[in-house]
């Protein structure tokens, strides 16, 4: 997880090119072994049990190890052992970059230090990020206002992207103004802390998300493809509602809507979500009553 964010930093600082980063990440992915796979390899779990935990992860916001322990598939000690095998995946990125001659070990190490300084990270925070702590990574990625208003939402979205759609996905704050894209899916969350939530994507990326979530190849944005992306947003928002309810805030959702060629107008917070098949945007506003769409829709937004 950290590799995607640190790799982007290396790219932004011109340490490496986009092609070199893609190449190194591809290598890293090829050697990165997932938690469930290690658990099977170690003989702790059966493939069916791993599948059951993955299914459960689509319903509740919990880590693989946590669910596996709850279901009695793993002990706490086994989880710790497996985690230590999985940590430090950024070392594979370092290995890939150095082996290919894109960077020296010294340059990589210096870049890590620069990243830590530029982000004013404590040793503890940085260590947690390197070990794949997604909450720390997202806190570091969002600005102050973003963390304050949308931190919990975006952290969960980053997790659900990895769980449902693309395990290499990473996010960054977008500075783009009025985003116009081929397809927009939106859903309002109502209650004490209302939220406008939307996914804005090009047709290609929309179809990619739709196909992955529907578990079948979809080649045109028909009713099924629209329902698939809308359901992904709905599932994510549902888990968010459960989390918020557990923290004492009851919220409700409005039905999702899918519209073509629409722009979201009004003050909103935009997140670029990078997947292996392209970028889409997550658009959020804590003042849904001020959000309008252009062209305007027949149905009311709030």
């Amino acid at each position: 997880m950290f590799s995607q964010y640190f790799g982007q930093f290396l790219l932004n600082k011109s340490f490496i090119t986009r092609e070199q980063l893609a190449d190194a990440l591809e290598f890293q992915q090829s050697v990165h072994v997932k938690f469930g796979v290690i658990a099977i390899e170690e003989g702790y779990m059966t493939p069916l049990q791993v599948e059951e935990v993955h299914e459960k992860q689509k319903q509740v916001d919990k880590r693989f190890g946590e669910i596996a322990v709850e279901l009695g598939f793993l002990t706490d000690e086994q989880v710790q052992l497996l985690l230590s095998n999985q940590k430090q995946s950024h070392l594979f990125l370092a290995q890939a970059l150095v082996d290919r001659g894109y960077m020296t070990i010294q340059q990589f190490s210096d870049a890590l230090e620069t990243y830590k300084k530029e982000n004013s990270l404590s040793d503890e925070h940085f260590e947690a990020m390197k070990n794949g702590n997604i909450e720390k990574l997202i806190t570091n990625t969002l600005d102050h206002a973003g963390n304050e208003k949308f931190g919990k939402y975006v952290t969960l979205f980053a997790k659900n992207m990895i769980r449902f759609i693309d395990d290499q996905a990473y996010i960054e704050v977008s500075q783009e103004k009025d985003l116009e894209n081929d397809w927009l899916v939106y859903q309002n969350i109502i209650g004490e802390n209302p939220l406008f939530t939307a996914i804005s994507a090009s047709e290609d990326v929309f179809l990619t998300i739709a196909s992955i979530h529907a578990e079948e190849e979809l080649t045109e944005v028909d009713e099924l493809a629209q329902a698939s992306v809308a359901e992904f947003l709905n599932l994510h928002n549902g888990i968010y509602l459960v989390n918020m309810s557990n923290w004492g805030t009851e919220l409700h959702m409005r039905p999702q809507e899918v519209v073509k060629d629409a722009t979201v107008l009004g003050e909103s917070y935009k997140i670029s979500v990078h997947t292996q098949r392209g970028v889409f945007h997550l658009i959020l506003s804590d003042r849904p009553e001020q959000i309008t769409l252009n062209p305007s829709m027949d149905s009311e937004l709030v």
Partner: peptide
């Protein structure tokens, strides 16, 4: 059946 299985 709901994605928001809150206690409420």
């Amino acid at each position: 059946a709901s994605s928001a299985g809150t206690k409420e």
